[in-house]
Design a binder for these strands. Structure first.
Lengths: 145, 145
DNA sequence: TATTGTTATACTCTATAACTATA
DNA sequence: TATAGTTATAGAGTATAACAATA
């Protein structure tokens, strides 16, 4: 198989292609493994549920999706036993979302697995250079509108 | 609005979240602009069509999707006038995909727009540090299985 | 009136399976 | 037989619109 980048003229390569490759590598890792029956999207939504609980609408903002879509994922994650929903004592409209121990466990396992992927990347480019990469990545992401 | 990362415990943050933010910024840029009626996915597929032309099956491998899905995008891009398909003189089964001038133009415009996004990121973290980031990103992506 | 969350619906993207036509 | 490409179908992910319940 020809190497992908050889097919693309240098002046047409761009950063989205490279970011896509990294993102895809993570996706392939997760779908090839057993994650309590959860898909990457479930893990993503669950990862933004804070210890103190959160409303579906606010969770949707953090995850970056509509409250309708977010509500669907929450329902599925309640069914799988990774999240629970309880009424907010201060506001009868709100359903407060929290993680169960199973949800906590999967979320921590994901963070550990991602750290493992990062060690693989660091091995490719060197620890020191990877640390710089990671720090700059965080700063760019933090400046994200 | 609360800052997203403040809601996530430090030991549960991971690299997929950060990469997702960058990826999303690019997506938001493209969907908020006019791109000849093309969506980001169209631009992505078209970006892997080399000057010499390519078969749909081979293009699918480069893009990282099935030949069925790839064929659908090619059909749409032919309809919009960004790609043309001609028979391969050497193999009657193959339909050789090439970009039209409109396809070339959109592809070059995308590369320029991505470079512009990168200049914005470089301004956030400094030119020198961004260059390092970008170089390491390429190396990690190149080592991608 | 405004907001939370739901249900209903549809579109995009991608995958698998089954088929055709060429090799 | 094997490969290129198609058509058919379905599922994942996400969006908009309309609604019910609560503020």
């Amino acid at each position: 198989m020809t190497f992908v980048k050889a097919e693309v003229p240098a002046d047409e390569q761009h950063v989205a292609m490279e970011l896509g490759l990294l993102f895809d590598e993570i996706r392939r890792v997760l779908v090839s493994e057993e994650w309590d029956g959860l898909r990457p999207s479930h893990l993503r939504v669950m990862g933004y549920v804070p210890p103190n609980g959160i409303s579906i609408t606010e969770l949707a903002v953090h995850v970056g999706m509509t409250k309708q879509g977010c509500g669907q994922f929450v329902s599925q994650l309640v069914d799988t036993g990774h999240l629970v929903v309880e009424p907010d004592p201060d506001d009868g409209r709100v359903r407060l979302v929290r993680r169960t121990p199973a949800g906590d466990s999967a979320t921590r396992a994901l963070a550990l697995r991602m750290a493992q992927v990062e060690r693989g990347w660091a091995a490719r480019v060197g620890e020191r250079r990877y640390r710089t990469f990671r720090r700059v990545l965080e700063e760019i992401a933090a400046g994200d509108s």
